[in-house]
């Protein structure tokens, strides 16, 4: 009886705590969202929370920041550039990483552990350290300022984490499935494509989101390897040049932030069902 009461009580309590934490978590974004709909003079003279004094007075809201950002010169080009950079920079590392991870997890070869430790070790190398040496190589090879160069750079920066995550995931898949497959005469190739990959869709999806967001939001890597000229600059670089050198017009960045967030949000919600889906649902059915 007592148990039941605690259970009944703890549930709402848990919910309240969760809701509270989410609210605190969301607060900065909500503030940013509200600010993005306010006019410049209001943003400069009062805090965003003051809109709650009369939240239904719609004259205080305006779409001006959004129209300004969207109609700024070269915004369409920048959006395309961002896609051109991000999509290959997401697909290439995940492809390579899944092959590598399978090898580390399921294939026996000498030096496997050492190689894996090296890959994991690369996780702690700060990417800023690599900027100058890699840019030097790129100059030599004529890759500086090209999309291929930045795809390779993002692939390199994304690989260690991707390999590490996928290897652990592949390693956790039940051995029996693979053994029975090999008994039926499957090669590693078949096992990889028919077993490992389909079973790992949740892991691949989360990895894709991570990598996509990282590349989409990246400013530094693009600025260094690609440069900021309009022909190649991604959205992040273009948006940062909306404000003047001393920070005049920073209020535009609030709207810019939400505009650049739209695509990642779409990606997230469309891939979300892969997270929820049971990891091994139905995998060992006869």
């Amino acid at each position: 009886m007592k148990k039941k009461i605690t259970k009944l009580l703890s549930r709402p309590l848990l919910h309240i705590v969760i809701v509270l934490i989410s609210l605190v978590w969301l607060l900065p974004s909500v503030g940013l969202l509200i600010t993005s709909f306010r006019v410049r003079n209001d943003v400069m003279s009062s805090g965003w929370w003051t809109v709650f004094q009369h939240p239904f007075e719609f004259t205080q809201y305006s779409l001006k920041n959004y129209t300004h950002v969207i109609t700024a010169n070269g915004m369409g080009q920048a959006f395309l550039n961002s896609l051109l950079i991000t999509i290959p920079s997401t697909i290439i590392p995940i492809m390579i990483a899944s092959f590598a991870a399978y090898a580390f997890a399921r294939m026996e070869f000498p030096g496997r552990q050492v190689l894996f430790v090296i890959v994991v070790g690369l996780l702690v190398v700060p990417l800023q350290m690599t900027l100058i040496p890699i840019l030097r190589v790129y100059n030599r090879l004529g890759l500086a300022g090209t999309f291929i160069g930045i795809w390779l750079a993002h692939t390199g920066y994304g690989l260690p984490f991707a390999v590490y995550l996928l290897r652990n995931f592949f390693g956790a898949l039940p051995k029996d499935i693979f053994e029975s497959a090999f008994l039926d005469g499957a090669s590693h190739f078949t096992a990889f494509f028919r077993l490992a990959l389909p079973l790992s869709v949740p892991a691949l999806a989360s990895l894709a989101i991570f990598q996509f967001l990282w590349v989409w939001n990246d400013l530094l890597v693009a600025l260094i390897y690609l440069g900021g000229t309009e022909r190649v600059a991604p959205l992040t670089v273009r948006l940062s040049s909306l404000i003047n050198s001393l920070g005049q017009n920073w209020h535009l960045l609030t709207a810019a932030a939400f505009i650049s967030m739209v695509l990642p949000l779409i990606i997230f919600f469309s891939l979300q069902r892969y997270f929820v889906r049971g990891i091994l649902a139905g995998s060992i059915k006869g």
Partner: peptide, 15 residues
């Protein structure tokens, strides 16, 4: 071809 960045010192030094 103008390349804009507000973190000029870092980008210029690297380049």
């Amino acid at each position: 071809a103008f390349e804009g960045t507000r973190d000029l010192a870092a980008v210029l030094t690297t380049r």
